[in-house]
Structures are given as C-alpha cells and as structure tokens.
Design a protein around this nucleic acid. Structure first.
Length: 919
RNA sequence: GCCGGGGUGGUGGAAUGGUAGACACGUCAGCCUUAAGAGCUGGUGGAGCAACAGCUCCGUGCAGGUUCGAGUCCUGUCCCCGGCACCA
C-alpha cells in the first residue's frame, strides 16, 4: 500500500527518506542505554501519572488499550519537559482467572503463560514509544508483591475489617467450583453451560461498608468525571428513612418485625407486609393450615434461576399470620413474595400499594386493600396507578396536612416518641467477599487451629476505653482468658467479628507462598487444598498445635487496590512502601483508565482510607488516592463494532507499527477525536497521519536553508509559533490531544507555505522570470531553499555547501519539534539530532510563549445587522477597541443593509463584534 | 423504569453566548508522471440566482423560550450510547 519502500523514495532527492523502522529501533536502543526515563529519588515538583495496569492475557494489546497509555505518555513527557519529576510506571495485574482457565485447558502452569504474555505486552509497549521507568515494574503474582498483599489483609484483620462468615456463592455443579459473578453468563457456567446454583460457604469479607459515608463524601474533593462519581454514589446507595416495628399478632405477641422505609409518611397506607422466601420469619409465621402450600411455593421460587436482567412476575403466598400496623393499630396480613430482596434493610417490607408501584401490582394481583394516604399537591391522584411522588398526608388522623419533605421528619419524631420506630440509614453497598476457591491468586494468610476452635479460642478485639477525643480504643485479647496478646503490636480501632480457631499468620512468616505442587484442575475444592507442601509444618500461632492454612486465595481486586502505592517503592523488602516514598509521590496526580468505575476504583479508595486511618500514609498524601481521573473512550473496529475476535476486527499496534511506525500510530490515535469519546478505527485516517509525519520530515530535512525575506513573513511565523505553543500547552494540560495536533498541523501548513515562498523567491532571483511565471514548479526539481540576505550558519555543519538559514525559521522548526516531541517521540528525536543538536529532545525544556507576540496587528471585526452576519472590517488592534472608529467603518462596509433604516441600538464588543439593531 | 453522556457536512470531529463546520479523511478538477503511487495547486454544508471575480436564502435531532445575537443558556419532546435495575 502506501508504505511500500519504493514509494517513499523521492526520485532525485539527495536527502534520506523517512524510514520509521530504522529511526525507531535506533532511538529505542539509545534511550535504553541512556536511562532516559529514570525516576528521580528526590523529586522537587512531583507528578505521578498512572495508567490502570493491564491484565496480561493471551490476547495481545490492541489499539484500544494503547490509547490510554499514549495519553499518559504524552502527559508524562510534557511534564518532564516542563521540569517536573515524573513517576510514570507500568506493571502487571498478573493473578486472575483467565490464566488459570488457560492452564486447566492446556496444562501449562499459569505462572509460565502469564510471564510469556508479560514479555509480549512489554515489547508492544516499548515499541509504541512508552516512556515507562521499567525499574519500577511490579508483578502482583510475584512473592515480593503478594507478601505485602497478605500483610495488608492481616492489617485489615487486626483493625477489625476482615471477618469470616457463611455466604451464598455461585457454584457450578458440573465443574464443582465456585464461580465469580463475571463467570456466570445468563445464569449458566461460562465454561460448561451448566445452570449455576447458590451454595453456602464460609467466606472472608472485608468491611467496606464501614467506610460507606467517607467513600461518598470523599468524592466531593477530587477531580473525576461527574458520571463516575454518580455511579459510585449509586453503588454505595445511601438512603435515609425509618425503621418501623410491627408487632406480630396472636400467640406470637411480643415479637416484632422491623421494616425499612424511605416513606414513613405513608405508614397509614400499609395494608400488608411482605417477606422474602428465605426469610427467617417464614417458618415462624406460617400457620399450620398454610404449611404445605407455603413450602411448595418456596420450592418453586428457589428452583427458579434468576436470570440477569429478566423481569420476574410478582408472585406470593399468604402465611396465615398478621402483624399490627403501629399507626392504624389494625392487623394486616403477612405475605411471602418473590419481589422482596433479602439482605437489604431488615429483609421485610411494609406493603403500601397506593404509593409504591411494586406493592400496587402485588395488591392488584392478590386483591389486597389499597388505601390512599398521600395527595399530590397538583390535585387528585389517578387511581389506576400508585402515586409515588411528594404530597400532603391525608386519611392519617393527626398526621393529616403534613407535607413532604417536612412530613418525613415529623413522622419519624412521632414514631420515636411512641417507641415504634426510629430514623435509619441504609446502604446498598455490601461487604466485599474476597475468598476465591482458586489457585492463581494470593493465599489468604490465615491459619485454622482445630484445637483452639474446640476450646472456642481466637483472638478478638476488645474496647479498652476512649482516647479522649471520643474515639474508642481497642486491643486484641484472647477470647477465653481475656489475656492481652503481646505478640501483636498495633493499634486496634474496632471490634471485629471473629471465628473460633482462626489466627493470622505471624508477620515474620510472610509471604505464604503459593504452592507449586498443585494440580489446578477443578475437583470441587480449592486446588491448593491438594498441595502437600502448603500445609507442611503449619502450627497454631496461639497454642503451637498442628494447624491448617486457609486454602482459598484472594480476589485479584485486592492486588489492584494498593499496587499504585507499591509503584513508589517497588523493591522495598521491609515495608509495603516506605513513608518517605509515599510522601514523595502520592497521591496520584493523574489516573487514566477505562471501565472499573465501581469495583476497582471503589476498592482502591477503601484501602487507601484504611491505610490513612492506620497512619501508614504520610498525612500530606491526603485521604483520597487519585486526584484526577480520566477515562479514554473505546476504540471501535473499522466496522463500528466493538473490537472482538468474534468480528475479526481487532487492530493491534503490531499491525500498524511495521508499516507506519509508532509515531504515526500514536498521533493518529490522539487525533481521532476527544480522548474520552468512543470512536471507530479508520485505516485511511492512519494514512493521513502518515502523510503528515512525512510532511514534517521533509519540512525539516529539505528546508535547511530557508530565509524569510519579507519582514511580514518573519512576523507571521513568529506569531503563529507563539500561538501554537500557547494552544498546544493548554490542550495537553486538558488532555485535548486532538486539537493540540490540529494546531500543530496548522503550524506545519504555514511553515510549508513559507518555505515554498522562500524557494520561489530564490528561483525568481536565479532564473529568468518567464521560466517560472505561469508554470508549476515540478517537485522533483525543487531545490533546497536559500537565504541570501541574512546569513547565520549552523554550528557544526558537515555540509560543504554553506548552510544558510534565518533565525526566525530555525527557531520555528525548533519549537515545532519540541511541541511535537511528546506525541511523536522517535521522529522528533531523529530530526532534533539531524538539525545539529547533541542531547535528547526529551530532555529539553518545554518552549515558552510571549503573549505580546501572539497579538495580530489588525483584527477582523464581524459586522452584524439585526444579529445577521453581513460583512467584516479590518482594523488595527487599537482602533478595534474604539467604538466610534469601528462604527464609522462598519456603517461604510454594509451600506445596503442600513440604507433607509433607523438604527435603534448599536451593540459593540471591543475588538470582537459590532451589531446594528435596525427597524 | 431510574441515573449519567450524547445528537453539528459524505466521514472523524472544531467552535470563552459573538463570522458554524478549525484540523483531517473522502471526493472532484488541475500539475507532475510512459504508467501507478507519492508529491504539489485549487474546489468541496445544502438550495437557488448569476456565469470567470458576485449575490440571496436555508442550515448544529424536533418544538418552543430567553437575548441585539443561541450549536452553546432555559422548558418540553424524540432518538442513540453507557451504567444500574423489583433496594421499599
């Protein structure tokens, strides 16, 4: 196609043609030798610019992944040139299910396949011109890293933030293994297609719910995309309301069922209660006569697979029991129904059919009474559907007339006084289940001692008073003897759930190595359980008896919750990162990556806050880890579909770089559109950028003797140069790479025109006029431009011909290369050296602009009549601010629109616009 | 259903409330060439009038509004993309 070697060679040209592969491999080697991107040990003005590190899968990186990395690379190079000390690291989120599944299929150890993939990824990134400091590389699957992942888990445990409890998990009966939610596709196992069932297993959780409020409030002080913040808030799902107690009727009198409601003001309208099929109340409330029907119903409901996204019809069955509505003091029936989510709130719901759409549907279906207690301020409610809006309370005795939002507070006050309810805050966020019955992850560093378990022993945390500032102080004690455990040197902050017999692995025994003697094929238990070496010599840290290790591994999101801290001090063997390194580099200034809007970004913020509270971070780092977050948009295939093997539309850097070079790839990706927009790949666009890169090459290589004869040309070049510096600088800061490149193109277009004019000038002075006038000059015979008037030879020139060039031109080319350097690091480095410089362009200071030089002498002012554009006038800067002058000139310029009209008003914006309002 | 983000030429996209379409892709015409490619010059939102050089009208999903002036602000509405989804 375009890039065939022969097509690039310009016939008769004495200058070397642009060969990206030669240029790029040459400078890649040079940069590696020179340690160009070494991170400072003592940063003065630090910038931590971070990518979301990739999972090294068997598929190579495609151009979509590269987009974000190019963006941060440009930013990093830019900041370095501006004199910042930049930390720009890369590493590998190496643990995870795909590698393990691949291992199961092929028998190749995940350790091996992962590390092969890492090699490929690293090569691709290097070829693409990324300026990572590989001395800071990390690999989450290396013991040097996961030792600290385990250490952090124990920290959580000690702070009462890790606990073990029974939980429902996705279980594939055929593969006999637990599946992550992502592995359950439409209710079926993604590997074998078997229906996934729920199974109760004892699991480790991290208490992220404790941080719910701070995870919400922290969002206010960071520069993230609004959409991401909103999604996190929704995920946490804080809602305020009331807990209301309903007393059970008849022989169960004295027992209360609590419900959570955001609309206690509708309490008089509660005509029934609903509980989910798995509620503990089902057994207690089902009356004798209903037993068979209820158990049949529950059997039917629990056997139904809850397909994701599919709307279930609401079904239910009456338990036979009643509760008392504390407001009306009337008895209302308790139903079991499938539309109540267990595990949210108290697991029971008051049915207010008049003012809740779901309750309305249910009441209609089972013919339950509907009682209207809220009246819309806009008038009478339409009784064919529930009215869920705000309004005035009616039919509710002394509450009548209260209106939302005040009514809610008033009702809660009323209920509190009566002792039947209280204010309550609910969250959707659940504690984070981190246990995985999988091989390829960090082992959970806990030990189970059957002997201690028998005696009911464990370590637990207990309050030892307060610190005076209202915060409780805790310490760890033996659960039976209540004796303080002196081995544990840390401050405990909260009381932990605990399980008898469980102890953290002592810190000096970390890491708990992932065993190698493991057959990772699934048989129903965690693969590590079958390792012999894993359990060898394990003893109870409390009593010394023979004990067993936890055989589950941690969710890989645990690794990525703190990896960005490790980047600051990746080789530290005595701490997860030194306080000094944390102080120097954190928090992250700019974090770029797509997806993971809730999971990773929420978990990482949670970890950070825990570390902050544990005083393991320097205070200067603050309690939010990522100050600025941006997400690159998806790159779609050329067919506008998502890149996927299925469509065969994947484009990788390896498809582009051999033909066009990494500079073209980088520039094209940045020019496609706004950084965060979804945009389709287009090969002809790549070729366009290839042509631009070549134009830059020729502009510099072929025009080494340009002189700008006319003073106005000199001024124009200087003006545009400074304007370009201004706009490119601003655009990079705001990640508007597409418009930065557009300004660079305009600058190149101007320089090209000027070079040509200079050449024409020379030709005219050399040849007979009639040889040129009226005839196009063939490109192949175009000689290098020349300067005759103002000579300033370049130092160190090898050429036998005098190299003559004027200062303005030289300066402009220099500025162009510097501005282009972060985008196209290879070609700019090559041209920088070709124009006589010795040191790397990437070590040069970023060019400055002079605002005064940007000012044009004259300004074009649009003239409007009644807001319609009718012409422009050209006036100089000073006159352009003078209304009288502009008005006179403007009137002259558009006579036919003003003739015979009355000018009622003149709108004048100095140096910008004039508008005549006429009638 | 709810929450976010968007609808601008043939295409990707530019536009602090002030000349809509920067910059590119594509395309058309011309130069160069045995030819192809590359390169170079010029045109290119639509419609109409006028014929080299000029002019008019219409144009940012749709309908209104605010304003001297709206792609931009406000109200309503339709469509597309992403996320959440029986959370009481």
């Amino acid at each position: 196609m375009v890039a065939k070697k022969s097509t690039r060679q310009r016939r008769g040209s004495p200058k070397a043609a642009y060969e990206p592969s030669e240029v790029e491999s040459k400078w890649q080697k040079e940069w590696e030798k020179g340690g160009l991107y070494e991170t400072s040990n003592a940063p003065k003005r630090k910038k931590y610019i971070l990518d979301m590190f990739p999972y090294p899968s068997g598929d190579t990186l495609h151009v979509g992944h590269v987009e974000g990395y190019v963006g941060t690379d440009i930013l990093s190079r830019f900041e370095r040139m501006r004199g910042a000390d930049v930390l720009h690291p890369m590493g590998w989120d190496a643990f995870g299910l795909p590698a393990e599944n691949y291992a199961i299929k092929t028998g190749i150890n995940p350790d091996q396949s992962t590390h092969n993939n890492i090699k490929i990824f690293k090569r691709q990134l290097t070829n693409t011109g990324m300026s990572y400091d590989w001395d800071h590389e990390i690999d989450t699957s290396s013991p040097e890293f996961y030792k600290w992942t385990q250490w952090l888990f124990i920290l959580m445990y000690k702070r009462g933030l890790a606990y073990k409890k029974m939980a429902d998990v996705n279980w594939c009966p055929s593969c006999e293994t637990v599946l992550a939610n992502e592995q359950v596709v439409e209710g079926k196992c993604e590997r074998c297609g078997t229906e996934v069932v729920q199974k109760k297993l004892s699991q480790w959780f991290l208490k992220i719910t404790k941080y719910a409020d701070r995870l919400i409030s922290g969002l206010d002080k960071i520069d993230w995309l609004e959409g991401v913040k909103v999604q996190q808030k929704n995920w946490i799902g804080r809602s305020e309301g009331a807990q209301v107690k309903f007393e059970v009727e008849n022989d169960k009198a004295g027992q209360f069922i609590s419900v959570f409601t955001t609309r206690p003001d509708t309490l008089f309208g509660a005509t029934f209660m609903v509980i989910p099929p798995d509620s503990e109340w089902v057994e207690k409330l089902t009356t004798k006569g209903k037993k068979d029907a209820v158990s049949e119903y529950i059997k039917l409901e629990t056997s139904r697979t809850n397909k994701v996204g599919e709307e279930k019809g609401k079904t239910g069955i009456f338990t036979g029991s009643f509760v008392i509505n504390p407001a009306t003091e009337e008895k209302i029936p308790v139903w079991i129904a499938n539309y109540v989510v267990s595990g949210y709130g108290s697991g029971a719901v008051m049915g207010v059919p008049a003012h809740d759409a779901r309750d309305f549907d249910f009441a209609k279906k089972y013919d339950l009474p509907i009682k209207w207690v809220i009246e819309s301020t806009r008038g009478k409610a339409n009784e064919s559907e529930a009215y869920t809006g705000e309004g005035k309370i009616v039919n509710s005795q002394e509450w009548n007339g209260w209106t939302t939002p005040d009514s809610i507070g008033k009702v809660i006050e009323y209920l509190e006084k009566k002792g039947t309810g209280k204010k309550q805050v609910q969250y959707h966020l659940r504690d984070w289940l981190i246990s995985r019955q999988r091989y390829w992850g960090a082992p959970i560093p806990m030990v189970y001692c059957p002997a201690c378990a028998k005696k009911g022993l464990s370590w637990f945390t207990t309050s030892i008073g307060s610190d005076g500032a209202g915060n409780s102080k805790f310490e760890i004690r033996n659960s039976k003897t209540n004796k303080k455990n002196e081995n544990l040197k840390f401050k405990i902050e909260n009381s932990a759930d605990w399980s008898a017999g469980w102890y953290p692995v002592p810190e000096d025994q970390l890491p708990v190595y992932l065993p190698k003697d493991v057959d990772f094929r699934p048989t129903g238990e965690s693969p590590i359980a079958r390792s012999k070496e894993f359990q060898e010599g394990v003893v109870c840290p409390n009593c010394g008896a023979k004990a067993k290790r936890e055989v589950d591994t941690m969710d890989t999101y645990v690794d990525s919750s703190w990896y960005f801290i490790r980047f600051t001090d990746p080789k530290n063997t005595s701490e997860f990162a030194s306080r000094e390194a944390i102080k120097q580099w954190l928090p992250v200034d700019t974090y770029v990556g797509g997806g993971h809007v809730v999971q990773h970004l929420l978990f990482a913020r949670f970890f950070w806050k825990v570390l902050f509270d544990a005083e393991l971070l320097d205070e200067s780092a603050g309690d939010e880890p990522f100050l600025k977050l941006r997400a690159p948009g998806w790159i779609l295939g050329q067919d506008s579909r998502k890149m996927s093997k299925r469509w065969g539309n994947i484009v990788t850097p390896d498809d582009i770089i051999p033909k066009y070079g990494a500079d073209t790839l980088r520039m094209y990706e940045m020019f496609m559109g706004p950084f965060d927009a979804v945009k389709p790949w287009n090969l002809t666009g790549v070729e366009g950028m290839w042509r631009f890169i070549n134009r830059v090459w020729r502009l510099v290589v072929e025009n080494d003797k340009v002189n700008l004869v006319e003073e106005k040309d000199q001024q124009e070049v200087v003006r545009v140069q400074h304007k370009t510096i201004q706009s490119v600088t601003k655009d990079i800061e705001e990640l508007h790479f597409n418009t930065a490149i557009a300004s660079l193109m305009e600058f190149v277009n101007l320089l090209q025109d000027k070079a040509q004019e200079s050449t024409d000038h020379r030709l005219q002075s050399m040849a007979k006029k009639d040889a040129i006038v009226g005839r196009q000059r063939p490109a192949s015979t175009r000689p290098a431009s020349i300067c005759v008037e103002r000579a300033s030879p370049i130092a160190g020139s090898q050429s036998t011909v005098d190299r003559i060039i004027c200062a303005e031109w030289k300066d402009a080319i220099k500025a162009l290369l510097l501005l282009l350097a972060p985008f196209a690091p290879y070609i700019t480095e090559e041209l920088w050296h070709q124009t006589g410089s010795e040191s790397s362009i990437h070590l040069q200071p970023w060019p400055e602009f002079d605002p005064e030089l940007i000012q044009e002498e004259t300004v074009a002012i649009p003239v409007q009549v009644n807001g319609k554009f009718r012409g422009t006038i050209e006036v100089d800067q000073v006159q352009g601010r003078d209304q009288k002058e502009v008005e006179t000139r403007a009137r002259e310029s558009v006579p036919k629109y003003l003739e015979g009209k009355k000018v009622n008003k003149v709108i004048f914006v100095p140096a910008r616009l004039i508008n005549f309002v006429v009638s």
